[in-house]
Write a protein that binds this DNA or RNA. Structure first.
Lengths: 340, 340
DNA sequence: CTGAAAGCGCTTACAG
DNA sequence: CTGAAAGCGCTTACAG
């Protein structure tokens, strides 16, 4: 492969001039610039990122750490982040801790440390003190998506408020027998995100002076199948069942709807369901939900990283200021209605 | 951050010895090895991958190019690939062409070319001649997942056979009025994968001497919602409807099942559905399907890459690609039964 | 088994 | 505006 020397030789200038011409930094005469461009093109030259990074200390490479990939929220965050990074000419190095401590250790102790990254985005991961310390050691910008980390730039939705709003919607429809399906701690994702949503739920009920039935506070594993089982049991209790349910994720809400239908209940007449997420399938299910746009969150995380890197050459999408919550959207469909 | 020099100084040896001790290559006395290990640990030393790569020509970094992330198959391929790579101490650089030519060009013309990778995995992408040429220029091992590429090591399932098997299953149950729901070309994924599955379908019907009804050959966009619309129309045709349907993906099969139910049909009594994929949700839907284990495919792609890189990481003389089909699995559940 | 030294391919003060 | 040169932090023949 052609190196910068070959280009310099062919263009009849020094390597320094080639570097300046190609990077656009520093003054270069129009003539030199053109000669370099031509020579580079003729030789099919592409610069070595390793060499460039070593010399300049900048990698144009962002690391992103996720607890899993094959779940709706994370796949969509990645989708948004990759597109935005691609747009800016950055590479993305993907680390998947897979909820396994062994993988997680490997990521934080080895992979992340190797100075190949300009910055790091963590998604829904509660870093331990040693992990945070490690990252600080490396001295790279860090943005946390989906949860609060001490002294770290964070992008997140207002889980408490989302759950409270969803609950208020059910209450305003006239429901008083309302259940909550939260998520158990999975993937080492322990931001108490489920807890914040549960708090919002209880707060809204409290405001409406509706008693919380502890039997109707459930947990599943954030999957459709897991929710199906729980809700099926919930609705089959011979001592009575709720008329409405708030699910902490849309995927769980799908399972809830399937369970209700399989039991012969008609929706929303017999049973109202509201989710949280904004999953594409929600439309088909007629699911009322609160959309949180994970793709846009991924983009926002990248935009914030670029700000931190001082890379403001691009018209940044309106990323919320550091201490604001990422905006969400109430989507009314047909899975919620007044109780029969 | 501590550099190799600092370690050498502290351990009282040369940088060459440090390099050899830490990499495990070359002879080093036990005493030196130990001194180096201790010094490195005390200083919290991690080597610079950029410098290491530049000097050695090896990156311990694999590129993977996907047409999208937020679709079941791709998310699961990535899940498998990241875990396997993590296990081996490799980084993964993720490129998402997003089905947009602009992104695709950026990936192939720029990002991929920058010599930061040891090898490349492409997923369900039919590379153009220039793209293949570019990749060859870089001279890195290449593995194609999900489709056949000329002179490229390939991992793929036998789409023709899968579709044929699924069709035979319906035929063996006694169905003669069988429809097929394929996938339109999306994401620039144009391996004629849908075509291969259609061919298998038609072949099996032909073997059974059952005529293909051209009205029952449908296309959707591989999404549940898209399939729902198509199947709803299919089943509402007043001139008669099929008693069974083969869907080219499980996600589409879910849409088909939802459509049939919404029309008041009972499954599988009135209508049998079989999918292809092995999606987790299939269990909940009782979907009979042919599982293709994308996570395992991702792992297999990584394993093949490692073979191509050779044990010491240097490309071996190209051995003939072991062009076997990736194994799939027939999963019988309750969505298929003899026609009423 | 070990070290001095060349070299990987760039970037960037520095001096002109 | 331009070039010579030092340096980024490693690896790896080469010679002991």
């Amino acid at each position: 492969m052609a190196s910068i020397k070959d280009v310099a030789l062919r263009a009849g200038v020094s390597v320094a001039t080639v570097s300046r011409a190609l990077s656009g930094k520093g003054k270069v005469s129009a003539a030199s610039r053109e000669a370099v461009a031509r020579a580079a093109k003729e030789l099919g030259y592409v610069l070595s990122y390793n060499a460039s990074s070593l010399a300049s200390g900048r990698s144009r490479n962002i690391g992103i750490v996720v607890p899993t990939i094959s779940r709706w929220y994370f796949a969509n965050v990645l989708q948004g982040a990759t597109q935005e990074l691609n747009e800016r000419g950055y590479d993305l190095t993907l680390y998947n801790t897979s909820g396994e401590q062994r993988h997680r250790d490997a990521v934080f102790q080895d992979l992340l440390m190797r100075q190949r990254l300009d910055a790091v985005i963590t998604v829904t991961l509660k870093l331990t003190a040693p992990e945070l310390h490690q990252l600080r050691l490396v001295g790279k910008p860090l943005v946390a998506l989906g949860g609060l980390l001490p002294e770290v730039s964070t992008i997140r939705v207002d889980d408490f408020n989302i759950a409270s709003l969803a609950t208020e919607h059910l209450v305003s429809l006239g429901h008083t027998k309302i259940a909550f399906l939260g998520g158990a701690d999975v993937f080492n994702v322990d931001f108490n995100l489920p807890a914040a949503r549960l708090d919002g739920f209880e707060y809204a009920l409290d405001q409406a002076e509706i008693a919380v039935n502890p039997q109707w506070l459930l947990d599943a594993d954030f999957t459709t199948a897991g929710a199906y089982q729980k809700v099926r049991s919930l609705l089959s209790n011979p001592r009575g069942r709720p008329t409405a349910l708030l699910c902490a994720s849309d995927e769980m809400a799908f399972g809830a709807i399937m369970a209700a239908r399989d039991l012969g209940l008609s929706l929303p007449g017999d049973f109202s369901v509201i989710g949280i997420d904004g999953h594409e399938l929600g439309e088909l299910y007629g699911l009322t939900t609160i959309a949180q746009h994970p793709g846009a969150q991924g983009e926002a995380a990248v935009a914030r990283i670029m700000e931190l890197l001082g890379e403001d050459g691009h018209p940044d999408p309106p990323s919320p200021a550091p201490d604001q919550f990422f905006p969400t959207e109430f989507v009314l469909r047909t899975s919620t209605a007044p109780p029969a």
